Simulated assay, not measured.
Amino acid sequence: MTEELKKYESTIKKKHSFNWTPKFEEEIRTDLNKTVIIPIVIQAFEKLGWDLVYQDEKNAEAKRKGDWNRWTEKISVTFDYGKLTIKSVSLGNEMWDNGRNSKRVKLFIYAFQNTEKEFDRETLGELEKEVEKKNNWDDYVTPESLPQPKIRKEPQFWIPIVGGIITALLLGFIVAFLSVKGIYIIGLFELGVAIVMGSVLKQLIKISNYTFYYHLHYLLIVMILVTYISNQYFQYQIILNENNFQPFSFWQFMQARFEAGLTIKKLNTGWVGLLISWGLQLVITYFIGVLRLSSSLISYSLERVPMEVVDFAFYHFVRQKTEDQVRDELSKMGWTEKQDQEEVFESIGAMQGATEMNRME
């Protein structure tokens, strides 16, 4: 951020926001047209040192980093018939933003209006031509050749299934052992379970070359259920083996657990608290696991196809060619197998998926 912007920032009068997700929004008018408005918005983001995470013809979004290199606010700018709407949303778990969102919005407006003044009619015309060239990929030079496909592995779904179930059973045993020993921490261990599941699935995806999200999503759900159901059974076996109890069934063990309920410090929350804790286990593990699975799929889809090939295919889509025509263009460059072509298309989708993940609040 420039010294001028830092100086102006210190003079801004903050407006505090209290909400589940604090936010602040303001509108301004502009005479700029839709072709140049977003590039100028992006220039303002760059001056402020904010990270651009999304742009299209009428919208641009950036995230601001604070201490510890952590994103603290997301700033969205939308253009609609001469009106610019600027909104800042907190990205932390806070319910009071201490006026930070209003500060980001007002600081952006100042940076944008100063950037707008740097352009006259002539430079705006030049910017408009430059933007149109960029959007149409006019500067793209069609290569004479492309990197050739690697030795293709047939997708094998059985590999993630077997690896996933084994992982779930191992996690179930570890969680059971820690629970019996009294060192289980609700929340922290669910986070650990989800991270391990995501890491294992990432490796299994690479080994199997299987990237069909819906099947892997269902597999993740099965893994979570197997982990926490087997956790109860392993607890039953550990308690039975370590104590001189009269033999009793797993069903009797579960009945005893419900009767004892969940005790937090000295407060017994009963069977209701026990069910809520189990529900939290499933929910926390599921949402973190889904994020890890999605990021793993995006990462693998992007790394298995050279970016030159992805750019080549995307260029032809920009030129309004159909999928069959793009397949023909890829075939001319040596990408003749349908699966290889599908992997190129998946990489294009993964780029869009990565953008959507960056946009998440």
Rank of each mutant, 00 (worst) to 15 (best):
Y214H: 07
S294L: 00
Q255N: 15
G172V: 02
I224E: 06
V272W: 09
H217M: 12
E361Q: 07
I348M: 15
E144F: 06
S299W: 04
N231W: 11
S230V: 07
W335P: 03
K7E: 15
V53K: 00
I276L: 13
G261Y: 08
F312T: 02
Y236P: 09
E25T: 14
I75T: 14
V41A: 12
N101R: 11
S102Y: 10
Q148S: 15
I159T: 12
T167V: 07
W20C: 06
I195E: 03
Y236L: 10
I298S: 05
I151F: 11
S10K: 15
L220H: 05
K13S: 12
I75G: 00
G99C: 06
K106H: 11
G270N: 10
V162E: 00
F245P: 00
V196D: 10
T2I: 09
Q246C: 01
K202E: 10
E190C: 12
K74W: 08
G66Q: 11
L330K: 04
P247I: 07
W251T: 15
L302K: 15
F157R: 00
T269P: 06
M351N: 10
Y236A: 14
K106L: 12
L146T: 14
L280R: 06
S102G: 13
G289V: 07
S102F: 03
D324H: 08
T211N: 13
L330T: 00
T285F: 11
E4C: 01
F258S: 03
F245C: 02
D97L: 01
R327K: 15
R64W: 09
R257C: 07
T115W: 04
G125A: 13
T11M: 12
Q43S: 13
Q148R: 13
A44T: 08
V196F: 08
F287E: 13
P22A: 11
I195M: 15
T85G: 06
G49W: 08
T263N: 12
K150G: 12
D80F: 12
H316K: 03
L216A: 02
Y8K: 10
S277A: 12
G198T: 13
M254P: 00
Q113C: 05
F18A: 04
G99K: 09
T11C: 09
S295L: 04
M357E: 08
L191M: 09
E126V: 08
L169D: 14
M1A: 14
N101E: 13
K14E: 13
N98F: 15
T30I: 11
E27F: 03
L5R: 09
F157T: 03
T2P: 08
L280V: 14
G49Q: 07
E61H: 00
E346M: 13
K106T: 05
Q237F: 00
Q352R: 07
E190R: 08
F24K: 06
M254S: 08
Y184N: 08
W158H: 04
E26F: 04
Y315S: 00
L32Q: 08
E122L: 02
L275D: 03
G198H: 05
L124H: 06
P143E: 10
Y110L: 05
G164V: 03
E154F: 11
K15Y: 13
T336Y: 02
W20F: 14
S17R: 07
F108M: 10
